[in-house]
Amino acid sequence: MTFFTENEYATYHIQDGILHINYKERIRIDLTAAVRIVEDRLRLQEGLTYNVICDIRGLREVDKSARDYLAIEGSILVKSVAYIIETNVSKALSEFYLRISKPPIPSQTFTDLAAASAFLNDQQEL
């Protein structure tokens, strides 16, 4: 089993049972990109469901069709997500996405990794 994969948009690795997705710098996501991002994630997961820590600080823009795809197809085999954000662009982006596109999985935003891990641990116990 591989624990690491990468494409032009993000790196993915599995560590201590948590899937980490780190978006690269200045990424713009359209539908084509979204499909690729989800496909590569699912290939790495080999059919298992994971908690995900998703670092979106590098994201610049996600367009409407990509947001809709990520909220539905992008939520498959994900138990819950903790997004790592900074205070401006990625905060605005995640607030909008969680409120408007409404992914059907428990999701929360954090500015630090420790709090994000704690949230996922709590979810694990539920």
């Binding site: 699912l42 080999e46 059919g47 539905i72 197809e73 498959i76 085999l77």
Partner: peptide, 12 residues
């Protein structure tokens, strides 16, 4: 839609 994703990307 969900089933299609699972068929394509998992071996369930």
């Amino acid at each position: 839609r969900k089933a299609k994703m699972l068929i394509q990307h998992t071996d369930f």
